[in-house]
Design a protein around this nucleic acid. Structure first.
Lengths: 240, 240
DNA sequence: AAGTGGTCTAGACCACATT
DNA sequence: ATGTGGTCTAGACCACTTA
């Protein structure tokens, strides 16, 4: 019995285009060659190439303009592929907090985190505590847990702190694109540490978000607990 | 200067198929005629018809099985197209709260709701206050606002309370399928009314969810504010 | 006017489910 | 073996942008 793995042409083309984007051949904001040129290059019909471009457009890697061309989407905090942490201020203006790492360590996975990351109980994880600030005010305090097994020895050695833009980091270092997540949401009263970090009163309720992020194979990539000062900032999400 | 409104063939076909589904010609779970039959019926090519079916599949109206056929998706709370209100108890078991309507009225749209529903300031809305309970305990308190213009005079007359399953109601009555939403999330301290409705202490923080729901044309269908007792129940969301 | 993406066609063949 | 949806092609024409 032979198992034949059938991969449609357009998916092969799609993957190759994506690889070339990540390799830097077409940097963000640059325009791709037009459909006919690319189709000829790959030796496929325009329709097949188009189907590849359409999927990449649906996944927000590309942006197409009729009459103009197809450009590579920006990958940054602004127009993130995965719009996590949509935080707004009181004037309904989106804010882009900066990150301050308080703690960075390698530990055995805490018991209550095991289920979220779906890993063995004796595995190790990278653990970081960070605060995120905007205009010198603290917006949120968060703890991040990432399975150590994703990191190569070399990366671990060279990395002194966790990079700020984690989802971009996972993509470039692990090749894992976070494209979905589940969140458990709670309103909680602040603990002592929260009061200090967020500079709030003990009666200020906090929005607690427990987020598990998954890559396209539904492998958990990270677990994150955020406590947000929702009296000053709005946490917005899109569901679809 | 002539303004020509250009509507692609496949969108016209798509709309007609959707109309026929809502009209009951193809009830949920039933199979549509195959691509060639439908294409011939509409006088379009198979490719054009396929594009219509593909969009309807992406919007969860249809489910396609290779080698089998295309069926109309089920509409109910369990296999809901749009899994709103994923509420879990302390044992991580999903709960399905029942609804008690406290108040049901037609009012002028409140000023602070106008922006969410994107309607004129003098329009009227259906307003309802409801609590949702599980095992005789109150899970959440919510207020719902729906533009009156969606309701026909006949429906308004016969309707004494808002139905429990609102998203199914919008679909059958308005033909509007809610398939995306934005939520603004906050942690708040309870007001007097909340303390009574939810039977909690004044120090119990509540998870407040302001949700605007949209149909496939991105028309706002409803605005809803929920206050959830997140010390007893977990509000879970999926982002993708 | 030229170039790009968007729509549409007619036909071929492939993979999958059922008979 | 038959029928279904899935992929692929080659070519035509339309709508939009830019020069």
């Amino acid at each position: 019995m032979k198992k034949i793995t059938f991969t449609p042409l357009y998916l092969q083309v799609k993957k190759d285009i994506l690889d070339r984007i990540f390799a830097g051949e077409w940097p963000p904001e640059s325009f791709l060659p037009n459909e006919f040129v690319l189709a000829k290059e790959y030796g496929v019909s325009q329709g097949t190439l188009r189907k590849a471009l359409e999927e990449l457009t649906a996944e927000k890697h590309l942006i197409r303009y009729q009459g103009k061309g197809t450009k590579v989407a920006e990958i940054n905090e602004e127009s993130s592929v995965f719009p996590f942490y949509l935080l707004y201020d009181k004037e309904q203006k989106r804010i882009y907090p900066s990150t301050i790492t308080l703690c960075y360590e390698i530990i055995s996975v805490p018991k209550d985190i095991v289920e979220f990351l779906n890993i063995a109980e004796d595995e190790q994880v990278i653990h970081a505590e960070r605060i995120r600030t905007h205009n010198e005010k603290t917006v949120l305090y968060e703890e991040v847990y990432i399975p150590k097994k994703f990191f190569s020895a070399q990366i671990l050695e060279n990395m002194k702190v966790l990079p700020d833009r984690l989802y971009a980091f996972y993509l470039t270092e692990f090749g894992m694109r976070v494209n979905n997540a589940t969140e458990d949401l709670f309103a909680v009263l602040p603990e002592k540490a929260d009061i200090k970090h967020l500079n709030i009163s003990e009666n200020t309720p906090l929005l607690m978000v427990q987020r598990t992020s998954y890559d396209s194979n539904n492998t958990p990539v990270e677990f994150r607990v955020s406590k947000i000062n929702s009296t000053q900032y709005t946490y917005k999400i899109n569901i679809s």
